[in-house]
């Protein structure tokens, strides 16, 4: 069964890295995957900026065409409706941040096939997601703007390189508490790859929820090794 998975959330919650890593995981499991860059609000650090890397691993990339990659315009990929409606294999959609970015999906919701799953990406170390009230408001505003009710939460609480197991653990508890309020399951926990080796502590923190190990693909200029 092919599956459409939409990642949305606030600015900087980690949607793009989650989308990229999720698409790559599906591809490595042998599935046909298309990743859709639907971010019309972020100028840097977007899926389209690592197009080549994704293509290398057999992930199809749907993004605004290369010649206008740096245009300061809210450009949508060509044929986006057809791809959302009839595209084959799994489709992973990276939506722009905040209600502003999610509005783009709102304009395409008639093209989303039934069963499309909206996953709200949550980082409790980010502004406007610090308390359950704030996070609840964020889910409400973003998902209404997107026109797609949430089907689950992705706990992606982290502090970049400074992320420790405690952040994963407290982030998951926070996401579960939010899920309880909203009647939503926590379906995935983002775990920075550098924590992978701490197996025992990680298992305790995750309590059975499936981790999505996050390699970083959207690098700062000084992190690029070439």
């Amino acid at each position: 069964m092919s599956q459409v998975t939409v990642f949305y959330g606030l600015y900087g919650s980690g949607k793009s890295e989650v989308s990229i890593n999720y698409a790559l995981r599906l591809a490595r499991e042998g599935r046909a995957v298309t990743i859709v860059d639907l971010d019309a609000v972020t100028p840097y650090f977007r899926v389209r900026d690592v197009r080549e890397r994704l293509l290398e691993e057999g992930v199809r990339v749907v993004a605004p065409k290369e010649s206008i990659r740096h245009a300061d315009l809210p450009v949508l990929p060509e044929g986006i409706r057809r791809i959302l409606m009839h595209g084959e294999g799994d489709i992973v959609v990276d939506v722009g941040g905040d209600p502003t970015g999610a509005r783009v999906l709102g304009g395409l919701k008639d093209a989303l096939r039934p069963g499309a799953r909206g996953l709200f990406v949550l980082n409790a170390m980010r502004p406007f997601s610090r308390t359950l009230d704030e996070a609840e408001e964020a889910v409400d505003r973003v998902t209404s703007s997107a026109g797609l009710p949430p089907g689950g939460l992705v706990s992606n609480t982290h502090l970049g390189e400074l992320t420790r197991i405690e952040h994963i653990s407290s982030g998951l508890k926070f996401a579960e508490a939010l899920g309880l309020r909203l009647g939503l399951p926590v379906v995935m926990v983002g775990v920075p790859a550098h924590l992978k080796s701490q197996e025992e502590e990680l298992a305790k923190a995750l309590r059975g929820v499936r981790p999505l190990y996050l390699e970083r693909y959207l690098l700062k200029p000084w992190e690029i090794a070439e």
Binding site: Y11, G12, N123, M125, R126, P127, R130, H158, L159, G160, L162
Partner: peptide, 14 residues
């Protein structure tokens, strides 16, 4: 405690 911030947001908060 630490927060994860974009540079722009951080300057505004500061």
């Amino acid at each position: 405690e630490s927060l994860l911030m974009k540079g722009n947001e951080a300057l505004a908060e500061a």
